[in-house]
Simulated assay, not measured.
Amino acid sequence: MRLPLAITALLVPVSALAQSFIVTSQDGVTIEATPVAEFDEPWAMTFLPDGELLVTEKPGNLLLVTQDGTKSEVSGVPEVAYAGQGGLGDVLIGPDFGTTGHVYISYAERGDDGLQGAAVARATLSRDGSEPALENLEVIWRQEPKVSGNGHYSHRLAFSPDGAHLFVTSGERQKQTPAQDMDSALGKIIRLNPDGSVPGDNPFQDAGDLAKSFWSVGHRNMLGIAFDGDGRLWTHEMGPRGGDEINLVEPGRNYGWPVVSYGVNYSGADIPDHPTRPEFEEPEAHWTPVISPAGLVIYSGDLFADWQGDAIIGGLSAQAIVQVDLGEQSDGTMARELRRFPMNARIREVEQGPDGAIWALEDRAGGRLLRIVPAGEG
């Protein structure tokens, strides 16, 4: 079993006036984080071409934010099922944003008899009026079936590098067995055309109508999805007690949940490890104790030149930003944790800014938006 690095690190204030602070990893690498704004349970963010950000708050608010922290509320957001892990989720601009203004959002929605499920909608971001607004909103995907409970929606979004397809992480809603059920979209990665229609070349064309939208199966709760510079798709997912994973996702593959895991059930009951069932895909790296990964970006900027191609992951229970090398390792896997930066707060989301800075959102009420650069370059 591959275990995480031992962590010893420092958190040192730089200037109380500037509110910036230095964070030092266990191997002595230093970054400088500057708070920009505070939010009510922030969940996700994306950059617009002009450098401003869209930030979601889980209770159901979408905000347009400048890089100096000025916020404007965006109207037109649909009602969300705000409870537990549910609420407003991811936000992503479309590959045609420059001509259409298309924005994609994910959220938890209510159904009949108290059941809930994730949904993805496409809208046009209008800035013609006094306040920004989502217009012509259309739901393009719904998680099937809706079920009871308020957990494991996942609903993270990513476009393929060519912009031709939208990928949606669909969690197993804490129900476990639907992840292996081809008549359920729970515990799957979904691949759609940008308008929500289903591509005819998805891998499960002969496994039922719903399965035609699946790209991969056997997942738990995936709160990070990103493509690397070589066009490979990566996701991470939370394990149960132990066994958080990062996976290199390939079409038509089965990643094993809940049949195998490097964790154990919350009851303490054992789950067989991946090598006992070679028909399931092995994670490229896994964590016990867990880091509770949330948010994922694969770095491509120049500001942290040595980090190009590395995965940057937010850690909720780890209260850290975790850097992972994505490349062939000596044990034949394709990922290895390099270092952690202890942030003294749950990190919900990470993104790369236009100038190569890393931006992070702290979790929960009062969560801050942080701009992160190499120490001394702030």
Results as ranks from 00 to 15, higher is better:
P4K: 13
E131H: 08
V23W: 00
P42E: 06
P78H: 09
P272H: 04
V80S: 01
S25D: 13
I372P: 07
A16V: 13
E131V: 10
R142A: 02
R336C: 02
L303P: 01
I358Q: 02
G301D: 00
A294I: 12
T276G: 05
Q329R: 09
M1R: 12
Q176R: 13
S170F: 04
A164G: 15
A269E: 15
A365L: 10
A9R: 02
L192W: 08
V147Q: 06
D201P: 14
Q352P: 03
N344W: 07
V350A: 10
I313V: 13
I225Q: 00
P258N: 07
A133Y: 06
L233N: 05
N247V: 07
L5N: 12
A33R: 03
T169S: 15
V373L: 13
Q176A: 14
P132R: 09
H155T: 15
E109A: 14
P95H: 13
G87L: 06
K58E: 12
T276N: 10
A158K: 00
I225L: 03
V290L: 10
Q323F: 11
R340I: 04
A285N: 10
A119Q: 04
G218D: 05
D355V: 01
G86F: 05
P203K: 03
Q67D: 15
L17G: 09
W359D: 00
S154E: 02
P275S: 08
G239A: 11
D113N: 12
L92I: 09
A9S: 15
V120R: 01
T30A: 15
E282Q: 08
S216N: 02
G229L: 02
D68F: 09
D273G: 14
G268C: 11
G114A: 08
E135P: 00
H286C: 11
I347D: 12
P161V: 02
A158L: 01
N202D: 14
D40S: 14
F227E: 01
I347N: 11
L166C: 08
P35Q: 03
P354S: 15
H236R: 07
T8I: 07
A207K: 15
V55L: 14
Q19K: 15
L316F: 08
I321E: 09
Q319L: 06
W141T: 01
D228W: 04
G196L: 08
H152M: 04
Q180G: 04
P145C: 01
P13S: 02
L134G: 03
H155Y: 07
A179V: 00
D27C: 00
I313M: 15
F97E: 11
P78R: 05
E362M: 04
F227T: 02
P161T: 03
